[in-house]
Structures are given as structure tokens and as C-alpha cells.
Amino acid sequence: MQRSLILLKPDCVQRRLIGEVLSRFEAKGLQIIGLKMLQVTPELSRKHYAEHVEKPFYQSLEDFITSAPVVAVALEGLEAIGVVREMLGATNGLKAAPGTLRGDFSSSRQMNLVHASDSEASAERELDLYFRSEELCDYSLCLTGFMRTDDE
């Protein structure tokens, strides 16, 4: 089982797509183990995007991510990181395949609705930025047996 951080970005919140995005993750069999809405501060933005702070495009990234609330989601599931990234599609919504979240709802490189962790190391770091350990809920779903076998 893997965990991943998902951020429903300001454009997702403003366009009222939160439910649509969450329902797709749930329909895929991913389990929501943490969920909250928050306003990203410039300080949190710098921590989250630490590898980009010195790049020329960083300020526009910070301006965007701090412009409106985001919804932070902790997801868990089999190969969750790769599964989520496939569901999102290409970073640029214009190049994302139909059927992916970005392919269906985005036509921008920056306003691409959702951020998702790209590795187990980044998932761990990002989850720690947005959630305290006591905010993540370990629980079993009664339908899990109908979503995958015990040996998966």
C-alpha cells in the first residue's frame, strides 16, 4: 500500500470540481485517509515547492497556489502514486489525454487542477507538510474485498 498527497489547487476549488475529482479517486478504489481545506501561505508554498524557489517561474507559482483555498487529500491504495498520476494525465491540460482529470477539465500548464506526489519520498515529505499524524485515519472499508484480492 502506498500513500500520496493530493492538492486540489485553487482553480479546482474555484471551479467547484472538488466532488468530481474526489469521486474519481474513490471510484478507482483509492481510500481517502485525510482531508482538509486550507489557505496555503507563502511560507508553506516555499516548503512545498522548495526545489523551485530559485527558478524564474517560482513567484507565479506561489501567487497561484496562495490565491484561494486548496483541499489537501491523503490517499492510500495499491500503487497509489502511479495510479493517481496516470489519472491526472499530462501536466499541461492541453496535452493531457481525454479521460484523465486534466484532459477532461484543464486547458492550462499551471492551472491544471491537481498536484500529486511523484514518489514515495516526496509523498512522505508532502504529507508531513499538510497533515499531522493524528489527522490521518487508518480504517478498513467493507468493500475492499470487492475491489482487490487479499494477495494484492
Rank of each mutant, 00 (worst) to 15 (best):
I81M: 12
R46M: 13
G82T: 08
V83K: 11
K28L: 01
L30F: 12
A90C: 03
L78Y: 01
L75C: 09
Y58W: 08
T41Q: 07
Q14F: 07
K9T: 06
R24Y: 07
L94A: 14
L38P: 05
P98G: 05
E26P: 06
H48T: 09
D11Y: 05
S67H: 06
Q31C: 06
A27G: 08
A80S: 10
V53K: 03
A27I: 00
E79N: 15
K95M: 14
A96E: 09
L61V: 15
M87G: 02
I6Q: 13
A90D: 12
Q31M: 07
V83W: 04
S107L: 11
A80E: 06
A96Y: 01
T41H: 14
A27D: 15
A27Y: 10
D104H: 02
A96I: 04
S45V: 06
S60H: 14
L17Q: 08
S106W: 01
H52A: 12
D63L: 02
P42Q: 07
T91C: 04
L101H: 07
V71D: 05
S4T: 15
R15S: 13
R24K: 14
Y58S: 02
Q59P: 14
T91W: 02
D104W: 00
E76T: 09
D11A: 05
I18F: 01
M37F: 13
R46I: 11
K55C: 02
K9Y: 09
G93Y: 02
T91E: 12
E62M: 13
Q31A: 06
G19V: 10
P10L: 04
L78H: 04
V83Q: 10
H48V: 09
K28Y: 12
L44F: 12
L101A: 01
E43P: 03
K55L: 15
V73M: 10
E79S: 10
G99M: 11
Q31H: 05
L5M: 07
S4N: 05
L75F: 08
K36P: 11
F64H: 01
E54C: 09
A72K: 05
A74L: 12
A80L: 05
V13H: 06
Y49I: 13
E26N: 06
P69T: 00
K36L: 06
A80M: 03
L30Q: 11
K36W: 05
S60M: 11
A90H: 15
H52D: 13
D11P: 08
F105H: 14
G82A: 11
I18W: 03
I6T: 07
L61E: 14
S67P: 08
L101C: 06
L7Q: 07
H52F: 11
I32F: 02
E26H: 04
G77T: 07
A74S: 14
K9N: 08
E54P: 01
F57C: 08
I33E: 08
I33L: 09
P56A: 15
L5N: 04
E62V: 02
F105Q: 03
F25S: 09
K95C: 09
R16M: 11
K47T: 00
R102I: 05
Q59V: 10
S67G: 01
M87H: 08
K28P: 00
A97C: 02
T41W: 14
S107R: 14
G103P: 04
I18D: 12
S106T: 01
I32H: 09
G34R: 10
I33M: 10
T91Y: 03
G77M: 05
G93H: 08
